[in-house]
Design a protein around this nucleic acid. Structure first.
Lengths: 147, 147
DNA sequence: TTCCATTGTAACTATTGATTTTACAACGAA
DNA sequence: TTCGTTGTAAAATCAATAGTTACAATGGAA
């Protein structure tokens, strides 16, 4: 199973805002045409990012902007804002191991710590990459490929 | 989205075999009653683990066993054997960024390397944990909780 | 004040993938 | 030959994502 496309879409949103905010009003329609997903999907995502304090959205007049310095927004922030995994658990554990079985009774104790270690390794790497990195790389690529 | 429960089920299978192989024949029914999932699900998983060279299964008479030293089987081996993520990509990328947009045109170049770094961090942690670790912890927990 | 582009949100559909279940042929040991 | 078991296909179910339509609420501009 893969991590939802909402994650890469959300990052794409940040890159678009940073690249175009001086020249365009960043509406959900504008974003939707760069990303090629339905504007309503974008709006829902913007809501989630707003709730996490990462993005500001203007009602009425319209337009989205980044709510705090991009150096202070990590990919982990975006990931948690956007993934609906309520529990925050990366791994799905089979629900009902048989507690009458010595292995079934202890499998959670054995695995939980190991799974958490794996999840933490991933999350730490996410925390080491910021939206500022994404933005500067985006600008670099754009100028390299002239325009 | 979470990583499929097949992963924890597969690890549970190894723990069961190691714990019970001296006293019981490890059939899909036996495993299914410890894990509490349908025996057919177990059999399909056993097939995947067999294809990866991690498990041996006897037809006819029945019974599963571990195909090589548990120290040589990492959680990453189990993960790749069992996850159907064909491409091996942890992150789902939105399919059709608009190539007429400078950001849409470059977003893959910008992100692919970063996403891979995150995925690799997770996989490396998986490689650092072996089935032997799981087995010894399982036995320790069982003896601590007396039986 | 009215107009209008836009947001926020609900509701519905479609699609995809995981999971469960039923069923049965093939196998191998007793 | 019998019996417990595996290997596998097919169908049914269920959950999550994604796409779509629709529309009230907003706020700036005419």
């Amino acid at each position: 199973m893969q991590i939802s496309g909402r994650f890469t879409i959300a990052i794409h949103i940040f890159a678009c805002i940073a690249t175009f905010e001086d020249d365009y009003k960043i509406t959900s329609d504008f974003l939707s045409s760069s990303i090629n997903v339905n504007p309503v999907v974008i709006r829902k995502l913007l809501q989630q990012l707003k709730a996490a304090g990462l993005i500001e959205v203007k009602r009425g007049s319209g337009g989205a902007s980044i709510a705090k310095p991009p150096e202070e927004i990590t990919l982990f922030d975006v990931y948690t804002a956007v993934e609906c995994v309520g529990s925050g658990e990366l791994f799905h554990f089979h629900e009902n191991p048989n507690t009458d079985c010595p292995v079934g009774r202890n499998i959670h104790s054995v695995l939980d710590e190991k799974l958490l270690r794996i999840q933490t390794a991933m999350e730490n790497e996410m925390k080491s990459i910021t939206i500022a990195d994404v933005i500067s790389d985006t600008k670099r690529y754009i100028s390299e490929n002239n325009k």
